Amino acid sequence: MDARREHLTDIAGIVGIVATADENVTYGVAVRDTATGRTTAHHHGPTPAHPSASVVKLGILVALLLRCQDAGREPTAEERVSAAQMMERSDNDAATALWHVIGGADAMDAAHRRLGLRESAAAPEWGLSRTTATDQLTLLAAVFGEGATPLSERSRAFAVDLMTHVVADQAWGVSAAGSAPALKNGWMPLSATGLWVVNSVGRVTAGGRDVLVAVLSGGHPTKDAGIALVERAARAAVSAVGAR
């Protein structure tokens, strides 16, 4: 068994007990140790793609920053206020306002392609956009400057600052896997089933190293059940790359 397969097994073994306890539950997890470059991913369910819920707000922010860079300008005062409300408090009205600024679903898809996301698809209702844990890891790498990124240092600093100031009652998720979290979470019940989508993406420090983690999940009977799985998956993922 190669090293990467071992890490996949570690994640599946620790998280799968929870996921398979309810046939409705699906999840995807991806992780990168920025010190070693060790990266691995695993998903449980028929497809690795999940509804984004509010983690799409990180993508909206990045698309806005790219748009500003292309125009040779800084975000306006109004855009900066909306970005802060969207990222720190997960304000939906602010997200909708910036969704229109960037140009909606087509513009989001274009930003995704530019950033190297290959499995994500924006939807007219932004919360129903679909993405994968591996694509979210690619987005995180762009934000945190891991490898080539079209984002300027100034744009990245702005995004990271917002991710480190999420209000306390929304700071769950990948934060369970380490200290000094910078994150964005998403959660919503699906109208068709009443079951919850619960997602968390971000960076934590564990074992003295910075680790990027993305966990997407669905099929939960409650938001709290989803949070419990996401946090378990985040801890398992960080352990799988040897950072705990």
Rank of each mutant, 00 (worst) to 15 (best):
D2H: 11
A3R: 00
R4G: 10
R4W: 08
R5W: 10
R5G: 13
L8R: 15
D10Y: 10
D10K: 12
D10L: 14
I11C: 09
I14L: 15
A19Y: 04
A21Q: 10
E23A: 08
N24R: 09
N24Y: 03
V25F: 10
T26D: 13
Y27D: 14
G28P: 11
V29M: 12
V29E: 12
A30Y: 02
D33E: 13
T36G: 09
T36F: 03
G37C: 05
R38K: 15
R38Q: 15
T39M: 01
T40C: 13
T40P: 10
A41F: 14
G45M: 05
P46W: 00
T47K: 10
P48I: 03
P51G: 04
S52M: 13
S54K: 03
V56F: 09
V56R: 06
L58Q: 07
L61H: 08
L64C: 09
L65H: 12
L65F: 14
R67M: 12
R67L: 10
A71D: 04
R73E: 12
E74N: 01
R80E: 14
R80T: 09
V81S: 14
V81P: 06
M86V: 02
E88W: 14
E88I: 13
S90Q: 00
S90N: 00
D93F: 12
D93L: 12
L98G: 07
I102K: 03
A105P: 06
A107N: 07
M108A: 11
M108R: 06
A110C: 03
A110Q: 15
A111C: 04
H112L: 01
R113S: 10
G116K: 03
E119R: 08
A121D: 13
A122N: 04
P124V: 04
W126M: 12
R130Q: 11
R130V: 13
T132C: 10
T132P: 11
A133I: 00
V143W: 00
F144R: 11
A148T: 07
P150S: 05
L151Q: 00
S152I: 08
E153G: 14
E153A: 12
R154W: 06
R154L: 04
R154V: 11
A159E: 15
A159K: 08
V160W: 01
H165Y: 14
D169F: 06
A171P: 15
A171G: 08
S175I: 06
A177E: 02
S179A: 14
S179C: 15
A182C: 15
K184Q: 02
W187L: 13
P189V: 09
P189F: 02
G194S: 08
G194R: 14
G194V: 07
L195K: 06
L195V: 01
L195R: 14
W196V: 01
W196D: 03
N199Y: 01
N199D: 10
S200R: 12
V201Y: 01
R203P: 12
V204I: 05
V204A: 01
T205Y: 02
G207M: 13
G208Y: 00
G208N: 00
R209F: 09
V215W: 00
S217C: 04
S217E: 01
G218N: 13
P221D: 14
P221W: 03
D224H: 07
D224Q: 15
G226A: 02
A228K: 11
L229Q: 08
V230G: 09
R232T: 15
A233R: 00
A234M: 13
A237T: 02
A237K: 02
V238I: 08
S239L: 09
S239M: 09
G242P: 04
G242R: 13
